[in-house]
Design a protein around this nucleic acid. Structure first.
Lengths: 126, 126
DNA sequence: GACAAGCCACTACACATGTAGTGAAACAGC
DNA sequence: GCTGTTTCACTACATGTGTAGTGGCTTGTC
């Protein structure tokens, strides 16, 4: 029952890059992230090592001997974990106030509102 | 334009206690939090000092010379900041996917769904 | 086969956070 | 007025995070 590893903010950026496209090598990831993070390659390597220690990613040697990295946990599961943690910390675990908060603090289009109402209805029947 | 200070998890617990009831002295807070956190009083004092440095709370001497603490920022503003940060980090700033996520991952009562739909409608007219 | 270039494991170091301990100052009782 | 209790400022110290630097091993090239 692989519990979801807790990732820091920088680590999350790496995870996003890997969920977006994997496997990637360390230098590929460095290039992928350069526009947003501008990290030195060693920074990327350090974060990769930490993510491996946490069990968030795995590696495999590719044919040429260099290592590639790929997620060990699904993005959806991690998002759920982060969401659950946020829900607990800030809203004491109560989903409705959270939903009210974001509904009120976001400018939604009429189309989005329609779809959200549909999803709310569905949530009652599942 | 007081920007909202960034508070750690432990610090947030203290803030909650103060939003709930303030002003409180350090030893009152220690007692208030004992059931949930079981911190030594010095731990509470350290966190209070850090919160003051961050501008999240203020103090005032009460008549007897001991100090009392109270929030310097409104809970609602802090919740908004935390929410905004979460929204950016995990959902790339898109409110609809966030709302979809929590709508689907929470068990809501029919009553709650009704109210949420009402709020969604209102959000279009404000 | 020595050298440059890439890959990697280790190490480094500052700041944040969780969680206190120590020791001085002030006051309360006897 | 000495002593125990409360309050506080300072200091401490481990772990996590952000952000690299160093130096060894491998491999492709003259």
């Amino acid at each position: 029952m692989s519990s979801i590893p807790d990732t820091s903010e920088s680590e999350w950026s790496l995870m996003e890059a890997l969920w977006e496209c994997s496997p990637q090598t360390a230098s590929e990831l460095t290039k992928t992230l350069r526009p947003t993070m501008n990290w030195a390659e060693n920074t990327v390597r350090t974060l990769l090592t930490r993510l491996i220690d946490k069990g968030a990613i795995k590696t495999s040697e590719n044919s040429s001997g260099t290592r590639t990295y790929l997620p060990a946990v699904k993005r959806e599961a991690c998002v759920r974990a982060k969401g659950e943690s946020f829900l607990q910390r800030i809203f004491g675990g109560a989903a409705k106030p959270l939903l009210v908060h974001f509904a009120q603090n976001s400018k939604l289009t009429a189309e989005e509102v329609r779809e959200l109402k549909r999803i709310l209805d569905q949530s009652l029947h599942s």
